[in-house]
Amino acid sequence: MTILTPILILSALTFILGLCILLASKKFHVKSDPLIDTVILMLPGANCGACGYPGCAQFAEILVKTRDTSKICPVGGNDLSYELGRILGIKMDDAKPLSCIVLCNGNKTTTKFLADYKGIHDCWAVKEILPSVKQCAYGCVGLGSCVEACKYDALKIVDGLIKVIEENCVGCGVCIGKCPQHVLKLTEKKVKKYHVACSSVDKGAITRKYCTNGCIGCMLCVKACKFDAVKVENFCAIIDDSKCVNCGLCAKVCPVKCIHLTEYAMASKKIAVKKTDDNCGGCEMPCSVKGLGEDGTLGY
């Protein structure tokens, strides 16, 4: 019978503590809209920050609260926007699918190295003591500070140069700030996309000395372009995306082959092609060929 006392005390104790927990859960309860929770579940959940908010939870909260149609999750793209719009009862704006490109093509075989670097394996760490590990002070350093930042495994160092794995890249843009040389850039995905893979602003002769893949500013591409989309600034060619139709003529004439083609897997939208009569030859057919058809199935 004397066992009764400890039983009573322990029961009372647990009862009181239980009450405390109950009170606490009521008093400190965080009210949340169940809709926000649903939206959070639909988001990719990588907390990459590409939307401009610190994490998926915050993006969901803002989206549900403001019902702002311009709030886009670049990772989920248009498919996700459509689904979110359905749930929230609004029509979301179209998201342009983005991808990351590298404005450098100098690897260990094509580019001369400056010194035998033995410090910390990080691109920023190199910049404190050298202009770069390679003799080109403007291109990719190649030690991979950006690789760790990518949550989608889309970046890889191959032979001392950074490469983007297109299937994995979702265009979140987190890697852009991680490059001390600013050779990573976000660009709109198209079925065919051309870009100049060089950032060197040295004179052509100097560039040629240290990198066989570097742009020498010869301006052959400028002359070849029929759409005025290429120009050379500071001895380096740049393609203007708003004017470029991705015909590929500049790439054909480039003597150092530094203009790259990237082909993205996209749902091809059949659009009507504006006939230009220029017969630029980019599609290897003259424009007036009957084979074009009404829907202009060129897949641009």
Partner: peptide, 8 residues
């Protein structure tokens, strides 16, 4: 021979 560069 390339010179070695590291931090002091």
């Amino acid at each position: 021979t390339k010179l070695i560069v590291s931090y002091p």
